[in-house]
Design a protein around this nucleic acid. Structure first.
Lengths: 223, 223
DNA sequence: ATGTGTGAAGTGCTTCACAGCG
DNA sequence: CGCTGTGAAGCACTTCACACAT
């Protein structure tokens, strides 16, 4: 049932695929060459039915009675997720968070290439991240983005500057935006926006703690 | 319909409440004193029905024909979310990400107090974050956690060290864990675990870009 | 035997639409 | 009138359970 032509795949599914991929890489490193959905689920706390459903969305990757080939499934997931060609990424904001993201393992790893960071502070422009990505002036975003076919802009500036950062990314024709700033951004409809709100997660834990304080026990979250 | 005694509230709801709270703070700063669910939704890209449902889970905060009092609703949300008493937080891992989180606005803001960071690298232990939180040796986690009644441990170490960091937090009796490491952690059932996976978000955008490449148009995400 | 792939059932979340209150 | 609060409908995601392939 290989997916073609604009069928809608849930974001939850693709996010889990990314997790499965990481698990497969770990298994691969450990020399496991075949694994069943059940074992994968037990080992990494997923549901086996969920794994099979998610994979079945994109094709038939398993062998009945046996399971999945770790190596082959890994390659398939990489292609499905679009990580077989490198995605150009820029980070707007070279503060603490921007620099941390630039050096974060998952960001300049297979599939992604951090082209540059952008800032306006004179003390930062001209420098580079530890991993070697240059810090350029924000005014050069358009030029760099079109020259290096950048596909994702990561916004890591304070809330007050986030909208103008998003506008700059939109003006540069970057099609997707990953926003870490605590702000609700307005972007043109052609742009895909995803918010990662770090405070939200903490607050939701605070709620859980407060709720637990007045009544019953804890609960474990998956994904 | 004020919620009492272990009724289950969805995490999605509490996460949105946290977003509403931030929006209300912005409105408050701007001097708005009353707002309808419709206006709130238009301004910050939510659904008005969703806002009303979310709020109705915890009580009747609005005035029919008028809307919500910004100030009163703000106070109510703060109490509901458990931010009226300060939650003690420790960050395990004083690398790029840990330091960024320690200084991140949303983390040492109203409701949260960053007690300390923990690491094992001699060059880091003894230092402090820009915001003043001390960096202590990981071996002192238990002592500090019980003395300062720490409720949330943030794990910001490399994947390979994440499980032992989680074990240390569990051993210290910390009830909730926010994991930024790209690893699937095993924690005791008494502990609430939440994963924030930065790579997952990027990968899911990469998928969207790859899918768009072969067929139709983009899509916007809310939350 | 074993484990996938999958319709069907189950559960949860969101949107609709309107009664009822101010 | 305008807007909340809310049952009911609609939609989406997850789990179940089993036919079927190896």
């Amino acid at each position: 049932m290989s997916r073609r032509r604009g069928e809608k795949v849930s974001d939850l599914t693709t996010q889990r695929l990314s997790l499965y991929l990481r698990c497969l890489e770990e298994l691969d490193r450990q020399g496991t060459d075949t694994i069943s959905s059940q074992h994968l689920a037990d080992r990494f706390h997923f549901s086996s039915a969920q794994i099979r459903k998610d994979l079945a969305t994109f094709g038939e990757f398993g062998v009945r009675g046996v399971g999945y080939s770790v190596g082959k499934l890994k390659v398939s997931l990489i292609r499905i997720l679009g990580l077989d060609r490198e995605v150009g990424v820029v980070i707007v904001g070279a503060g603490n968070l921007g620099m941390a993201l630039a050096d974060y393992g998952g960001f300049n790893q297979k599939g992604f290439r951090i082209v540059a960071l952008f800032d306006v502070a004179p003390g930062k422009v001209g420098g580079a991240s530890r991993s070697g990505a240059p810090i350029l002036h924000l005014s050069r975003l358009g030029e760099v983005a079109s020259g290096q076919k950048v596909q994702i802009a990561v916004v890591a500036v304070p809330a007050a500057a986030a909208q103008s950062a998003a506008d700059a990314a939109a003006g540069a024709g970057i099609p997707a935006l990953l926003n870490f700033a605590p702000a609700r951004l307005r972007v043109p409809p052609s742009m895909t926006l995803r918010n990662v709100d770090l405070r939200t997660q903490m607050v939701s834990l605070a709620y859980r703690l407060a709720a637990t304080r007045r009544s019953a026990g804890p609960r474990r979250d998956h994904l």
